[in-house]
Simulated scan of single mutants.
Amino acid sequence: MMKIHATAIVDPKAELDSSVEVGPYSIIGPNVRIDAGTVVGPHVVIEGHTTIGKDNRFFQFGSIGAAPQDKKWNGEPTRLEIGSGNTIREFVTFNLGTAQDEGVTRLGDDNWISAYVHLAHDCQVGSHTIFSNNAQLAGHVHVGDHAILSGYAGVHQFCKIGAHAFIGMYTSLTQDVPPFVLVSGNPAGARGVNIEGLKRRGFTRPQIDGIRAAYKHIYRSNLTLEEAKAALLREEEAMPEAAPDIRAMRDFLGIATRGIVR
């Protein structure tokens, strides 16, 4: 049986698995779907066309699926999709997508989202990320798997953050961050490879050496981006164990739209 507190308001049209828990004074709108094992704490509002996967935990005072903070939005039936196994702490704000993009804001699986985090309209966040308190994403931001955003990091709209990147505390990010790169500062600057994070995730020494070599081509060799991409292609052939990781960095250079942090 669902454990819905007597003071919670759940619209009859909402679709909740029988194992979902809803805490005191929370509100669930008519177009919301929540899968098994998810726990919604007290004073949480979940609205809009929002789909939530399994085994998530929402702490108190969150605003999930509210209208995008975009003056172009005109009530279109855009969506918010949240995966499974996420921990979502207090006072977060996740907005719907807009018709100007794919129409959906996405959060993947097994993410740790700390208090006061904002995911604006059309953000695409992968899996296994960590957002520390007050990390803020403007609209249309893409964040890769295993990326970490430290406290009070702010990300400009349309920026891309690659997998395993690390964004330092109070960083003001206005350009794209390639995979594996550690950036910090205001304005942001590249500080090296996120070596500690890679070690914790089981990257081998040859993999890390290959990533460091790629970083040097991009940041330490005075190469243009086109020259750096050619150099990374040569490193893929020379360092086969690290080839997929070097390729990820090279591919990112091809999709960066705001220029990379350098």
Rank of each mutant, 00 (worst) to 15 (best):
W112A: 12
L149V: 09
T105M: 07
T171G: 13
G202P: 12
A188V: 04
F166N: 01
P178C: 13
H156L: 08
L137F: 08
A115M: 12
L96C: 10
G189I: 12
V104Y: 06
D101F: 12
E102Q: 15
M169F: 10
S132K: 12
A165S: 10
R201D: 12
T98F: 07
S84K: 10
T98P: 02
E102A: 15
Q124F: 10
E196W: 13
F158A: 04
G197Q: 12
A115T: 14
V143R: 05
L198C: 08
N95V: 08
L119P: 00
G151A: 15
N134T: 12
H128K: 09
A188D: 03
F166D: 00
K160S: 04
A115R: 13
T93S: 11
M169C: 13
G168I: 02
A190R: 07
S184P: 06
G83A: 09
F158M: 06
G168F: 05
Q175N: 14
H118L: 10
Q157M: 10
A190N: 06
R201Y: 10
N134L: 11
H164W: 06
P178H: 08
A190Q: 08
G126D: 03
N186P: 04
P179M: 08
C159H: 11
P187C: 03
R201T: 08
L182N: 12
V117I: 07
F131V: 05
A190W: 02
N111D: 10
H156S: 09
N111T: 06
D122P: 13
V183E: 00
E196I: 15
T174W: 09
H142V: 15
T174V: 11
R79D: 06
F203R: 03
L149N: 04
A163D: 07
Q124N: 14
G144Q: 05
Q157Y: 03
R89V: 04
L80G: 00
Q124T: 08
G108R: 09
G97S: 11
K160Y: 02
M169N: 15
L96W: 05
I82V: 13
D109Y: 07
G139L: 03
A135S: 15
T105K: 03
G108E: 03
A163L: 05
G197D: 03
E90C: 02
G103A: 08
G144M: 09
R89H: 11
Q136C: 14
I130H: 14
S132F: 14
I167G: 04
D110Y: 15
G139H: 09
H121D: 01
A165M: 02
V177K: 07
I130S: 10
N134H: 14
V177D: 04
G85K: 07
L107S: 01
D101T: 08
E81I: 13
R201S: 11
S132L: 12
